[in-house]
Design a protein around this nucleic acid. Structure first.
Lengths: 202, 202
DNA sequence: GTCTATATTGAGATAGAC
DNA sequence: GTCTATCTCAATATAGAC
């Protein structure tokens, strides 16, 4: 994955920008102003280009969104695949998924941020929501398996548990900053601790 | 507070709609399509009125948003005031706030949903964010007090704890439906259990 | 690969009649 | 309290030159 907010257009040869740089600039603006409120003119201005030049790289605003959402979903689906390859207990696989989700969330922060704001008003958004629901279903199955093992509390519906867990995890995008005082690993440890053991003093 | 999605314009005398009905119709649309993507024309259409008639009730689209956000923030600030009036331990006051937040969230669901999507691009939104941050600060202080009491874990920064707690709580707006199988009280119990005790089987 | 210029659509908001 | 008609502005997207 590329660095977002990188220095201007790190290209050799001809001046101008590449697709990735256009995408990251657009994503940054989408997050700042919201997707709808971000005009192609604003993206063009940030790139130092005309609107028409932006359309040369992406044929529509919605395709930029689609490319960004695919980065986020691909990462999360990858974590699930890796967890499925493990041979340990359901609890171990669940922990792996939760930690992996935090990792994807921090390493692909802008893309996941965008994914979590999608509401499903266009085809691109609906397809992203479909993949996200599929991810949720898989995690819910893992929670149910861990409950059947006896390693996870059984007094709350696995669907509710999963939603609350990912409510906690996903909220990280609201405040985590890669240049902040906290490393991604440290954050993942704290999130796992809160999720597994809760708030109360032991 | 009024019922959202109520039956059409429950009014006596002249036909026509009142401010509250206009607001609730607008809020429902804002949630469905996003604030920016919702046009005054769409709101008018749902009301069975012309755009001009909508402007008779609210002088601007932003004022509808402001009124909705005030409903949400007023509720949360009220919980904080009530908690401050209690004389118990910090832990008890914190539990009261968490439970009260879940209650406001479910009883004023559309307004809180809107609040949680605000990004701060207009004056109305920035003012709402300011009040929300103030609320967060108060809760963080309560978490710190509970930690000093020894009732809350001390290995994680109170600010991180507060953010994760409200990440979990706020995520309820993404899936809770008042007509669903779960009562608001039952949900509050489950959320408190997950927040305090965590996921692991005891 | 980038530009200027423009076609086209729809937005928020207002005027003034009924 | 509601309407029709309209103003003004900005959006997405395209045409065609360089």
């Amino acid at each position: 994955m590329s660095e977002l907010n990188a220095v201007p257009a790190p290209k050799k040869g001809r001046p101008g920008v590449d697709r990735q740089y256009v995408l990251d600039t657009a994503v940054t603006a989408f997050i700042e102003f919201g997707y709808d409120a971000t005009s192609m003119g604003m993206i063009a201005e940030r790139l130092g280009l005309s609107k028409a030049a932006v359309y040369h790289h992406y044929p529509a605003k919605a395709e930029m969104l689609g490319a960004a959402l695919d980065e986020a979903l691909g990462g999360l689906e990858g974590v699930l695949l890796e967890a499925g390859a493990h041979t340990g207990s359901a609890e171990e696989r669940l922990s792996y998924v939760l930690r992996g989700a935090v990792h994807i969330l921090t390493s692909r922060l802008p893309y996941v941020t965008l994914l979590l704001r999608v509401r499903g008003n266009t085809d691109v958004e609906r397809e992203a929501l479909r993949r996200r629901r599929e991810f949720d279903r898989s995690v819910t199955a893992l929670v149910a398996a861990a409950r059947d093992e006896g390693s996870v509390r059984s007094d709350i519906d696995p669907r509710v548990v999963t939603r609350l867990l990912f409510g906690m995890i996903n909220s990280i995008v609201e405040w985590y900053r890669p240049d902040g005082p906290e490393s991604a690993d440290q954050l993942a440890n704290e999130v796992l601790a809160m999720a597994l053991e809760g708030l109360s003093a032991t």
